[in-house]
Design a protein around this nucleic acid. Sequence first.
DNA 1: CACTTAGATGAAGAAACCTTCAGCTTTGGA
DNA 2: TCCAAAGCTGAAGGTTTCTTCATCTAAGTG
Lengths: 209, 209
Amino acid sequence: MPATAAIAFQPRKTPVQSRSEATVDAILQATLQVLVSVGKEKLTTTLVAHRAGVSVGTLYQYFPNKSALLQATLRRHMDHVIAAVEDICKSARNRSIFDQATALIDTYLEVKLNDVNNSASLYAIASDVDGMRIARNVGNRAHRSTTALFSTATERLTCEPELIATMVLCCITGVTRRLLEDKPTQKFLSAVREQLLNMTHAYLRTCVR
Amino acid sequence: MPATAAIAFQPRKTPVQSRSEATVDAILQATLQVLVSVGKEKLTTTLVAHRAGVSVGTLYQYFPNKSALLQATLRRHMDHVIAAVEDICKSARNRSIFDQATALIDTYLEVKLNDVNNSASLYAIASDVDGMRIARNVGNRAHRSTTALFSTATERLTCEPELIATMVLCCITGVTRRLLEDKPTQKFLSAVREQLLNMTHAYLRTCVR
DNA sequence: CACTTAGATGAAGAAACCTTCAGCTTTGGA
DNA sequence: TCCAAAGCTGAAGGTTTCTTCATCTAAGTG
């Protein structure tokens, strides 16, 4: 039976009454809270349920196992980030590639640094096999959007937008990770942001005309 | 007893006969192999011992617990990387900052991509609390070396070498991570390497004179 | 208001894995 | 050669945490 593995991560029951929707939401929120406060290693389903104000049994009514719970939590966060990126990629079309890059950087930094704690804790669970897959998936979507965005740039580009997108995104994520490693001061953050813009623009200058 | 926590991760016994050195080495190597083949989640001490050709008891004679084992494995890899970086940072002094950056990039890419599988698997365990600390520690050392390196550049710099080092390293690690995510083709790798040099140099041009 | 279905409970079962330790084997020096 | 110390063994104990399920409560509907 080839479908077993896939089934094992699907929600066990779909909420039909509104109260259960609230329950699911509380559980996901609690998962993130527990993750941030005690860390991935000490996160247990019982603890999450307790934090959510429900019993373990309830938790297992909506999530078939612990992995699925963590996955759902990660996916929720990723959806948030990717939505913001895809959004800006749509609205910044047909502009100078420098403006586009600036918009992308600002969006990315804002959405990731908005809740530093959450993002940092979620990196921890992303290393699980399936977390890797989700992260890669999101990475691909971001890459596609960005490529599409750069394709509409008013400038004529000297190399493929795919490659440019890869480089710019790598640079942004590299910097973001660094910023998430330890709570940056406001001063450091703005200095790095400026340099990131600087670097990206300097690079893009070599890619136009 | 404030020392307890620290003691808990120190090796339990120091090898004095040469055979035990070989054993420790085999165990560390086996840990990496198991990590790569079955992943962090399914790695058990028994499995590692078996792969190393020893019994669990032997493993526990040199590592007080599973965490210490993973830490030691991670540290070993990190030491390898940081040694290469510090090495190149020493030998590339008093040269053009562009050459310095090129040397740094080539070293970093080579040492990381040399064994893609190992590096990628190790990222997975680095998310454990202490792995984070080790990674940060190595990051700091790399940052110090790089700062020192750039300080000796023949060009006059327009902003602090610390900041330049931060940016260049972020960029390099961002790209490296991307390359480790999925086995890159030779073509893609060389294209990205070229762009990374391109981007870094473009950035550095804005930092000189 | 009765009745069906959705939702919630949490003690207890089950499985997985870490870690120990009493005893055995090998090594190397006197 | 002999022996003390180093090294090795692996079954068994102990924890921890996941997951289930029989039972109870709340919600909606005719």
